[in-house]
Design a protein around this nucleic acid. Sequence first.
DNA 1: TATTGTTATACTCTATAACTATA
DNA 2: TATAGTTATAGAGTATAACAATA
Lengths: 153, 153
Amino acid sequence: MSEDTTAREACDLGWSIAMLGRRYAAIVDPVFETFPRGARGYQLLHTVIHKRIPTQNALADYLGIDRTVMPYFVDDLQSAGFVQRQDDPRDRRVRTVIATPEGITRYQELSQQVLRAEQAFFDGIGDEDRAVFVHSLSLLARLSRDDTSSRGR
Amino acid sequence: MSEDTTAREACDLGWSIAMLGRRYAAIVDPVFETFPRGARGYQLLHTVIHKRIPTQNALADYLGIDRTVMPYFVDDLQSAGFVQRQDDPRDRRVRTVIATPEGITRYQELSQQVLRAEQAFFDGIGDEDRAVFVHSLSLLARLSRDDTSSRGR
DNA sequence: TATTGTTATACTCTATAACTATA
DNA sequence: TATAGTTATAGAGTATAACAATA
């Protein structure tokens, strides 16, 4: 086996990952055109609906955005009527972000459009390859939580 | 986990892709700490070594960076002695970016470190799943070219 | 007129520092 | 002292507009 081939694959992986993200955004982002904070705002709404993450800091960590920009996201989604802050009686510093019924309805509409857009995104590879890809992708993405904390250097 | 997953998977895919990119950057980017323009600069060097892309505009398009920032990339890599601009006698507007011997040497050093870092990135999934994943990833990433530009290859 | 390369400018997104109120 | 939330500011990265040289 030649070293040249392996070395070539090294950077193509970085390029492929960057391209994948750009292509996904190019196809799916139009769905979020009228939604506050675009794709990130939608992901925030998705998260507060499906996961139970009590604090805004933990939410920011999960979504990979800085703690200091989280208030702006919550403000915008709250102004639009999709989420609201809920005081935690057990810890009065905490304001848990929860979705409003309006937010849930809007989310359900958007998620349908996202699904359609994602079918276009996967147009070009077979259903079986797609399933295997999504499985490995999900696995590799979820590793990051364990990685960033323990496997630093 | 198998019932109501259609709507849920919709956003998790976007989250997973974003997370994948962040995790890859977190693990691999330290390699490029001392390299001009970091990972993007390395990808530029990789591209001019392995592909023959004549114009800086086409290079910018391939790397997914704006054409107006390309001169800064080339300037920095040229100052470091890794690339140089080569006049094209057939079209005197064009200055093709080519790697210097110094640049090729530096690239070979870096690509070895990238390979090691990428092994850590894939630590957690099997070799077979990795191969399938990289294949589909590469395929999906390359689709974008056919999408944005009308000509197929 | 269109394109290549380039520069200057403006804009967006993100990170840094500091403050408050709670624990 | 440490943490949750917030705000203001500075920085990095990106896009917009315009230019000279060439096709």
